[in-house]
Design a protein around this nucleic acid. Structure first.
Length: 593
RNA sequence: GGGGCGGUAGCUCAGCCGGUUAGAGCAGGGGACUCAUAAUCCCUGGGUCGCGGGUUCGAGUCCCGCCCGCCCUACCA
């Protein structure tokens, strides 16, 4: 039975290029999941985009002397190009600065407001006297009033760990320009999170045994101490507040996180409009059979397991104040929140400023996308922090991708091409032949269950066990030694090629572009697993921007497909590039400086 | 300070509800083979499962304490 699956992928923040840690946390895992789901016949809608509002972008833009929009435009394009180059199969990758996004965000805000879940509150905020801009707590530093540590942040003291209000700091200064902030009264809209405590609690309880325990535990733990949370900021770079007396205020905008999570919905709506059926998004958001999977790094759990569900519940009128659904109708909560851990770089945290980083762009300039995808699949931060090292990358690439998998493809096809020029027909099968074929067929159920559960390491390893078994099979059968028995050689190579074909299917979610190549090598026609493309689109207001989209209706199915004897075979060219061990030192030198 | 996660062979990691001699891949050592990007295959050495207690007939596997690393702590996405 075909199901509708929403793959909601965390939105990369557009204040700079993204590094391989980012894509290992959400991009590649969500793509492997989506490709697998499409192969089993489900209707996947995979959406994301760049997150472009908020203070960090404004601060970065000020530093560079450009407008926030110019900065966002620049990095939106860089990120779009990088994610496309990685082969991430978004149905739509858009951005948060579109008219559509603004409209959807404002609709959600109004729905929450009308249902009584958002209320105004006056608080004290810090502003910079020279720019008149609000300073977020993070950007204020001073002496801790409790332990007298001299570089406590406005929100918390790193030394004693106490949470602070920036107004308590002794000698507060702006981290941006060193001036002393002034504190003024300011009015903001608060989301009434406590009104959702009960319904969130029972919703989370119902996910017991279904979600990863770390995500669930974390979310349940937060329930105990829910406080109203500000959903607006004193800033001009953001979505205006859609209420009379507020919408025209140049310095009141919705909090960036409020608008960012709504992107999943707005992007779905934008995708539907572009597809020609403006209501098509409802099949993923309003059908009780549809499932929504959200992929992100662990730092985002609170927004996806707590705040986003609360926003949806409030919009639906399902919190303790009740209410009724807004104009879009009742919206579905996440089915699953899949959070990954963090990748570190040669034992250290990624840090752009300290050059402990490798950007996706730089990586792809020197290495193949599938090489990175493979590393992430098999050694990524799936259930715990993992360390990226260049020597591990070299080993994985040369020892596994090239030596085990690439070589199996190469030796099988090249023997068959050289001896017969076509895919040979099998004669009578031996026990060993049948065992080999059975082993590879059995892998579909096993690896499939692993992909379904987002356990990409296990899924990939299952495929590699088939590959190792196939190399062993060839070593034992020794077709090169029985040239006098061509019928037996045909059978052996037929079996080997069938297993190669199966393994390329098993690895399609992980290695789409090399699987496409193998598909073509074995005589496949048309598209096997679709690849994303960049399209330039123009808004009604005349602004144009790049999106990632694509048609992913390929031939790829999650099953063993019989190869067709007689199909012409050309001598193969290597699939993967073997790397010179010298790259390890070269890359380490780049890191250092 | 509070919460979460992790600490298993040289390296990267598997080890659901506790159950026979603790596993894989890579690296190391020895051998075989030559179809293949000197790839592949076979054999092999190697572990006080962070530390200390406890529960149990029996504990990497459960409980308590401690040490170390990482993440979050809600105005960093």
């Amino acid at each position: 039975m075909s199901q509708h699956i929403l793959t909601a992928v965390a939105w990369p923040y557009a204040n700079g290029p993204r590094h391989i840690g980012h894509v290992s946390g959400f991009g590649v895992p969500s793509d492997m999941f989506s490709r697998y789901q499409r192969m089993v016949g489900n209707k996947v809608l995979m959406v994301s985009g760049t997150d472009e509002h908020g203070t960090p972008i404004q601060v970065q833009a000020d530093k560079e002397g450009v407008s926030a929009r110019e900065l966002a435009d620049r990095y939106n394009r860089v990120i779009v190009e990088d994610l496309q180059a990685l082969g991430l199969s978004y149905d739509l990758f858009t951005r948060t600065t579109t008219d559509n996004h603004y409209a959807v965000v404002q609709e959600i805000f109004k729905g929450l407001y009308d249902n009584g879940y958002i209320f105004p509150k006056t608080t004290m905020g810090a502003i910079s006297p020279s720019t008149a801009r609000t300073l977020p707590d993070r950007y204020i530093e001073g002496t801790c009033p409790i332990c007298h540590y001299d570089s406590a942040r406005g929100d918390q003291c790193d030394n004693c760990g106490n949470q602070l209000d920036p107004i308590q700091l002794i000698n507060p200064v702006s981290k941006i320009n060193g001036e002393t902030p002034i504190f003024v009264e300011t009015e903001h809209f608060m989301l009434d999170l406590p009104a959702f405590a009960e319904v969130l609690g029972s919703w989370l309880q119902s996910k017991q045994g279904e979600w990863r325990p770390n995500v669930l535990k974390f979310a349940l733990n937060l329930l105990g101490d829910l406080q109203p949370r500000a959903m607006s900021r004193d800033l001009d770079w953001g979505v205006p507040i859609p209420l009379e007396g507020w919408s025209d205020q140049p310095n009141k905008r919705l909090y960036v996180w409020f608008d960012a999570v709504i992107g999943y919905l707005s992007a779905s709506i934008e995708w539907a409009r572009r597809s020609g059926d403006p209501d098509a998004w409802r099949q993923w958001w309003q059908s009780p059979d549809a499932r929504g999977y959200y992929f992100m790094g662990k730092d985002n759990i609170v927004f996806h397991a707590e705040i986003w569900p609360a926003l949806l519940l409030g919009y639906n009128g399902q919190g303790s104040r009740d209410g009724k659904p807004g104009a879009l109708g009742t919206l579905s909560l996440p089915s699953e929140v899949v959070s990954s851990e963090f990748l570190t770089m040669e034992g250290r945290k990624f840090s752009s400023s300290r050059q402990v980083v490798i950007y996706v762009r730089d990586f792809l300039a020197r290495y193949d996308a599938d090489a990175l995808r493979y590393y992430i699949a098999v050694a990524g931060p799936e259930s715990q922090d993992t360390d990226f090292t260049w020597s591990e990358f070299l080993n994985r690439n040369n020892g596994e991708l090239v030596a085990a998998w690439g070589n199996l493809v190469n030796r099988s096809i090249s023997m068959a091409a050289k001896n017969f020029g076509v895919i040979p027909e099998a004669g009578e099968l031996t026990d060993a032949d049948r065992a080999m074929l059975e082993r590879s067929r059995a892998a579909f159920a096993k690896a499939g269950a692993e992909f379904e559960a987002s356990r990409f390491k296990n899924a990939t390893n299952e495929a590699f066990e088939v590959i190792r078994e196939a190399n062993r099979y060839l070593a034992e059968q020794e077709p090169w030694k029985i040239k006098d028995n061509p019928e037996r050689v045909k059978s052996i190579l037929h079996v080997a090629l069938q297993v190669v074909d199966d393994a390329k299917t098993l690895l399609t979610p992980v290695l789409p572009s090399s699987s496409n190549k193998i598909y073509a090598m074995l005589g496949g026609t048309g598209v096997w697993s679709g690849m994303p493309e960049i399209q330039e689109v123009t808004e009604e207001n005349g602004r144009s921007y790049p999106i990632i989209t694509g048609s992913y209706e390929g031939a790829a199915r999650w099953e063993s497909t019989p190869i067709r004897p007689g199909t012409p075979l050309a001598p193969p060219t290597p699939l993967f590039t073997k790397l010179d061990p010298k790259i390890v030192e070269e890359e380490l030198a780049r890191l250092a400086g």
